[in-house]
Design a protein around this nucleic acid. Structure first.
Lengths: 218, 218, 218, 218
DNA sequence: AATGAATGAGCCTTCATTCAT
DNA sequence: TATGAATGAAGGCTCATTCAT
């Protein structure tokens, strides 16, 4: 019931130091059941995936799965919280490493989000598409974390505006827009696509900056 | 067998004239079964919704539902194609009404997308979240329409670049980004939110223009 | 969901007139699902019986069973309440038909119990052996009815003692003892046993009278 | 493999001397697994109890339980035979200690049964309610012992009738009735009830004598 | 169109049981 | 004996779907 959940050597949320290397992504270290569930949720959604699917994909029997997780819902919850922990952890680490320049700080966080939504596209996608499938308690917790992530972005925008480096009159809307761009990326990005991840980061960062600098009056 | 599907007085795809008034949205005129299915799909997803749910929500018996649609899949397909038809119809109408100015043409189409994703947020949301639940044939058709919509945007961007009014070196990426913004809106927009739809259109249009004008080099 | 539960022409509890003929037993008129469940519960107990067992024994598919009862528990509850209703109904009818003589009144009720525990031995057995398997609410209701039945007996004993025709100093204990005899009968009685039902009624009634007349001091 | 089953210092069946003190009951000396199983079987029945329930209630792990008993069925069998051994042992001891008077002999055996069904109410209850859950072989053995117990009673009744101290024309029926009274007691008796065990023995013995003396003709 | 009845397949979950450590 | 890991079979229940009326 333990060995397999959020892995021992996966840094915990809030543990900024742990994601020191926030730009680097190794193989995802999800336990095999979560990895199998992730793939299935991406393809068919939570309700379209059966425990049998997950069991088969992880090379276990059905009770084998239940040995590790008490319910299908618990699998989803474990996946979601692993996702949010890593995303927030990397964003915090990015911010911590960014120095004082408002633009650099903003770009660091956006880049951390972009890279996460590319490198962990499945998790990122499920993290936003299956929120509705979470039980109320877990959902509330997940939403709180997501809001925290978005607030981080909004605050950076506000600081940039205060510093005179961004022009947008609507930092909250821009924060939301940037999140939308990231979620969108998780949908269409392929590792083997025509552009490299680094190239895409450059392009998307440019767009994010444009958003941060957009004014309501043309 | 399909008496009430794509409603008699709902303009058909390609029928540009029908959406002359592309900015105006009345009550959605979905047949009650589709309306019920839509609400359920938004809340629980296609696989999380049963025919009994749909029947109950539409005040029909289960065989009553089957009298109108041959399967649950057919309900989804009808919903999706109604969605895409209206979105494309309104976008085409917007374009047709926009005159020759590249910026005006671009803004007309973006505005039509924005308004659709607000006024028809449920349909827009399901249209993108349940693509994976469509049977292969229907899915292919749906994707083709979505690509058409996005191509329209990309071409307008390219024309704007050619005309020297937009600066982006990556029109396709920007088109995708704008689509992402729209899909995002469908998720968070509420009719009774703090800003009016018109106000939001202004803000989002400003962001879209900023994207269109964004360059890769800071 | 309706046709099959406590049958339309089965007299209701409290409807004394309905069991006018309280000595006579026809074929049990349990709906087939309850009949099948009864047989299985007698043989293997509630927890030892699966819905699949019940379905097979009633010639239905599993969902066929669920069309009539919402859960296995509801099947048990329906069975239990049908049992108690008939038992109490017949006992009340017996009492109503017994005139004023205390002994005759006592014997009428005991006879009604005896005959019920023979003619409806399966139901009587399950009625006492599966009380623990009832959900709390249903269990409370069932116990209340059982207590009512036993109180009826105790009161008759007290009236007999008051009238000087019974000697027991412990009417409540005797009432309980008589109930135990009846429950016991339901366990060992066979329709095709060596003694006729009428003969057994004579024997058991003699024992019941002896109990009613038993004194604590030998 | 059966280290803790029928406990080392529990007298074996047939070992009359062992129950010399047949009226006295100490703490039940069931091995903890059987004690846990007993409690669970009383409350939920054999089929309503899982090995995990038993393991948890006995503070063992699941394989720990299997270390002592080869199967759930073996647990039931051990429980049942411990029950029957003690009941028969105490009844035989009571009889052996009773002298020659037919009434005294009858009363001794009935008293031994009454006391057992009070002091070991759980075991007595399970002993009769879970006979159906025993595998055929064990069941046959158990029934044989139960029949032996009842035959003992019947023979004593017949001897009493022959000696002119009992009047019943139906000793077998009376024996059965007395067994029913005992089983009934196991259901409703509580150690902390309003009457003491001794007081109840007096009352029930009076009833048993009344049954022994009952005649078929009023 | 509704109602009632029905079903094969499948769902999530638990069962008794086993084996390596 | 505990822990951990595992499994075939089965459990209660629901699914999409059909058909007669």
């Amino acid at each position: 019931m333990t060995v397999d959940a959020p892995d021992a050597d996966t840094p915990e949320a809030g543990d900024t130091a742990a994601w020191d290397d926030w730009r680097t992504y190794g193989e995802p270290d999800l336990p095999r059941i979560l990895a199998a569930a992730l793939e299935a949720f991406v393809e068919h959604g939570y309700h379209g995936t059966s425990i049998r699917d997950i069991a088969a994909a992880s090379g276990l029997s059905v009770p084998g799965v239940y040995h590790h997780y008490r319910s299908k819902q618990e699998i989803l919850a474990a996946l979601m919280s692993a996702t949010m922990d890593e995303l927030l952890g990397r964003s915090r680490a990015a911010l911590a490493s960014a120095g004082d320049d408002p633009v650099a700080r903003f770009e660091a966080v956006v880049e951390s989000m972009l890279r996460f939504h590319m490198a962990r596209r499945g998790q990122a996608f499920v993290g936003s598409s299956e929120m509705r499938s979470l039980d109320p308690d877990e959902r509330a917790a997940h939403i709180a974390l997501r809001d925290e992530q978005q607030a981080m972005l909004r605050v950076l925008l506000e600081e940039g505006v205060a510093a005179g480096v961004f022009a947008t009159p609507y930092p909250a809307d821009v924060a939301r827009a940037i999140s939308s761009l990231c979620v969108g990326m998780a949908s269409w990005y392929r590792e083997d696509g025509p552009q490299s991840a680094d190239e895409l980061v450059v392009r998307e960062l440019a767009m994010a900056r444009a958003l941060a600098d957009s004014g309501a009056t043309g």
